[in-house]
Design a protein around this nucleic acid. Structure first.
Lengths: 95, 95
DNA sequence: ATAACATATGAACATTTAATCATATGTAAA
DNA sequence: TTTACATATGATTAAATGTTCATATGTTAT
């Protein structure tokens, strides 16, 4: 594995390494949601959610589609679920 | 999944989300190494490596054993390898 | 065209955090 | 018990990053 790949790997995990983003990802575990839905469900500001969604999208962890005035976000692929699940396993075993 | 578990999950990924720590973990992928080995191989200061190893150990990602004057560190379990591998897959697919 | 609603974005501020330096602790040999 | 080597740790500093506030952009209906 190259130094560059290791760097990218750290960048990827950095995205998962924030509780707001993890909470956002988790709300989308089963369903796609628009920005306001997420903000309301997690008691976050619209701005904060939007900023974080941009980071998540840049990292290809979520995708979005516009429907009228709203933009719906969802997990980009199964890897995201797998990574979250894998982490949970570690935590539960080591607790 | 509870709010607390999500918080812990973020804390776990935060540990993976630093290129120095990822590089340290990766040097130990196949073999256990002492602090100085790691520092030399990665061109890092002894202090920096030691600080990071403490974080890795607190998170249960590595374990250590003392042998004379040296302390040998190694990955704590297969989850660590699995998490790293999973992340690499995501990166390679999305590149 | 404009009003209303939804989302995105830039700047400023506050917090977190990694690296460095100095030093302490631990271990083994002389 | 000193000396030398290996590791750990506390304090400080610099850089990275998340939130907020204000505002811009985009979309739909009147």
């Amino acid at each position: 594995m190259s130094e560059e790949e290791l760097y990218d790997l750290a960048e990827l995990y950095k995205v998962f390494g924030d509780s707001t983003r993890i909470r956002i990802l988790y709300t989308m575990f089963e369903q796609e949601l628009c920005v306001n839905d997420i903000a309301r469900q997690l008691s976050l500001s619209q701005s904060s959610v939007s900023h974080q969604l941009r980071i998540l999208k840049t990292s290809k962890l979520v995708k979005s589609r516009r429907a009228g005035k709203s933009v719906y976000y969802s997990l980009d692929d199964e890897h995201v679920r797998a990574i979250i699940s894998m982490g949970m396993e570690h935590i539960q075993e080591k607790r």
